[in-house]
Design a protein around this nucleic acid. Structure first.
Lengths: 159, 159
DNA sequence: GTAGAACCTCAAGTACAGTCGAGGTCAAGG
DNA sequence: CCTTGACCTCGACTGTACTTGAGGTTCTAC
């Protein structure tokens, strides 16, 4: 068993699935969508180079960050085609996600503080609190946009 | 125009859409799925009570937290059916989301610190770093699970 | 009374991220 | 040789959260 030996140099799809914690169907799906690539044996079976493990790790982690497969593919396409990606390559594209992650965390923290404010004041009229209505495009009836700092919540939304 | 006056007591769907920042089709969709409710005019048009604005604000905010519509509906079903929800009701179910939000932020922060570790060490072999493979179910070949604290990354994934 | 905007229902379509099944092939052990 | 498990393709299906379109009605303003 010289060249296409799974287990030594190349991985069969089942092995890759097991080692990456991904399902076989997901791996085929990723390949269909250009996220990973494989060679084929004479019998048309997929064989994966071991650096595909790294790509998959990157894909799964990116998904946890909240990135779509389309964006992940775009990032992966910025990897060199000719040579196997270096550490510097991975650092570069991961650092980009790091910034995404920061932004997402900041967004949620912002949401949390706003939610706290709304829970605190008891109104939860998020639409009128500026949480869900930052520009505050409200009805011209004169009710609704009233703030809780004016006495005892004159918000007309019957409650 | 006494009883079903949109603009004074009840809102037509277009008005509700505008004031809540939601599309008309989304509102119909929410109603189909039991997230909001409406009365009908003699001519079969929807009329919404103003407290629906609050429900929609809750729905949109919950979605930002990352809650699915099914869960949101379940939460909304815990609101009293008979009476218009009080502040205490909203506080109760929002506080639940507050905990969800905390958990989500903590998860992302955890991910961030792990990602930092992997960027720091330059390996990004997340599969073997425990980031994507917490239980570390790895091949029995003896390669792959090696940690970077042993000299200069003997990780066999060709790079 | 009539034009046009806003509304109605119902069915179908979209995007995302896969999964499932049918029907067939490949590879390794006994 | 033959069985068995892993693999192949292709098409259809799942679930989530909506949007779009066709064909028809209602409301409001002039």
């Amino acid at each position: 068993m010289p060249s296409l030996d799974p287990g030594r140099n190349l991985l069969a799809i089942g092995q890759l699935a097991e080692r990456s914690g991904t399902s076989v169907s997901a791996l085929r799906f990723y390949e269909q969508n250009g996220l990973i690539a494989s060679e084929r044996t004479a019998g048309n079976q997929r064989r994966y180079r071991r650096d595909v493990l790294r790509r998959i790790a990157f894909i799964r982690t990116s998904q946890r960050v909240g990135i779509s497969l389309a964006e992940i593919r775009a990032a992966l396409e910025s990897l060199p085609d000719a040579r196997t990606p270096t550490r510097a390559d991975w650092v570069r594209i991961s650092a980009r996600w790091r910034r995404e992650l920061d932004a997402r965390i900041a967004d949620l923290q912002h949401l949390r503080s706003e939610l706290d404010g709304c829970i605190g004041c008891g109104c939860l009229s998020l639409a009128t609190c500026g949480l869900r209505n930052p520009g505050d495009v409200l009805g011209e009836t004169g009710r609704g946009a009233v703030r809780w700092d004016s006495a005892s919540h004159p918000d007309a939304d019957e409650e």
